[in-house]
Design a protein around this nucleic acid. Structure first.
Lengths: 210, 210
DNA sequence: TGATATTAGTTGCAAGTGCAACAAAAAAAA
DNA sequence: TTTTTTTTGTTGCACTTGCAACTAATATCA
């Protein structure tokens, strides 16, 4: 899904020229590093070249919410956040990120490189994929009960992993933060679903029986 | 916010040529008309030229959820939905919509019109604004209590309407469907907030006192 | 205009969820 | 390896929320 690169259909030699033209910087981060502490304030666009990261909000009661999980090929920028809250971008493993300037990207450089068009089209494509994942997120979050949230989320995963046997991309602790529900209540509900024969599970491995 | 048009910086005469080139159709809908019954299946891009519409999901228990509210200048398409659920687009007043073909838009027509670039840039801009509103939506939905959801939503509105006195763009019934909470529970919470002196309200008019 | 439909506002009660506080298992670090 | 940290799994209890079933107040339509 995120296999579509922003440099799709652009020659490697041109990619290097462009990175120069956009004043792109490639940076490396260790696991659990705060990459950005206020995403809304960045004027850069970032692309995860390898690794993964999460966008999180710290709630005043000490809990946190995982707003988004980004993996290889995915994009982030000021559009990844609303105006009203401070969100953090944190690596979840060893991660390489390419940053480049948003305005340069949008307003075209003076040279008006022919590959620039292609880049913008690629970005459009990546953004529309991102929109779809946002819609999936909203679909899950708008479910009212914990069980419905879990089933909706498992459903999306089965479609992506094309199997009734799925592996969560999160720890269960993180899953609760992602679904914005209490972890212990979620564990209780998973237990109920197992007892009712809806699913089988062991840690991050879930098997859907319906 | 949605004042930015997809035809920004394009001459009106060119707009007409483009609409032709994209096989664009302009359609008019009366209030409460189902414009699309499965948004995921459309290959068109739609722009609300005037009026407004909502994207909704019917839940199996007879309730419905308002997934998104679209007003003048806003865009929708297959990216407005996830793969897994059937969503409906319904006008909420007299509405004009311009539809055009997504592939034509992305892959460029053979003529390679110079205004085509401008159009794609405009679309990128509109999409990134849309992403922001999606993030706001997620911000609200990830709040755990009804009160927190209401306050987060009111907060976003005060920023948009630049005032502590806000008017909801929804009926209270629709607001509950948008926040994905029970209407009567929401009314109860609004009442509590009034009694605690947090807000004043009468119907869709809300004054924030904090 | 009066009749009809929709929205707003209220309440009791049952069910679901969050919170706190654990123990056990697994993973990571020393 | 052993030690330390993190994650998983469990439960009682209080509180929040959803549901159902109303009435009152507005809108809408004939």
């Amino acid at each position: 899904m995120a296999k579509y690169s922003i440099f799709n259909n652009i020659e490697e030699s041109d990619v290097k020229k462009m990175l120069n033209c956009f004043e792109a910087k490639k940076l490396h981060y260790k696991k659990d590093t705060t990459i950005l502490s206020n995403i809304a304030n960045t004027t850069d666009i970032g692309i995860i070249e390898s690794g993964s990261a999460i966008i999180i909000r710290y709630n005043y009661n000490g809990t946190r919410t995982i707003i988004d999980k980004l993996t290889t090929g995915e994009i982030f920028g000021s559009f990844s956040t609303s105006h009203s809250e401070e969100l953090y971008l944190i690596s979840t493993e060893e991660t390489d990120i390419i940053f480049f300037n948003y305005n340069r990207l949008i307003n075209r450089c003076k040279k008006n490189c022919e590959y620039h068009n292609r880049l913008i089209e690629n970005m459009l494509h990546i953004l529309s994929i991102k929109m779809k994942t946002f819609n999936e997120r909203i679909e899950v979050l708008t479910k009212k009960t914990i069980r419905e949230k879990l089933l909706a989320y498992f459903n999306i995963l089965t479609k992506k992993q094309i199997s009734k046997s799925i592996t969560l991309p999160f720890s269960l602790t993180d899953l609760a933060d992602y679904l914005s529900i209490d972890r212990s209540a979620m564990m209780r509900e998973i237990k109920n679903m197992k007892e009712e024969g809806l699913i089988e599970s062991k840690g991050k491995k879930i098997y859907l029986l319906y």
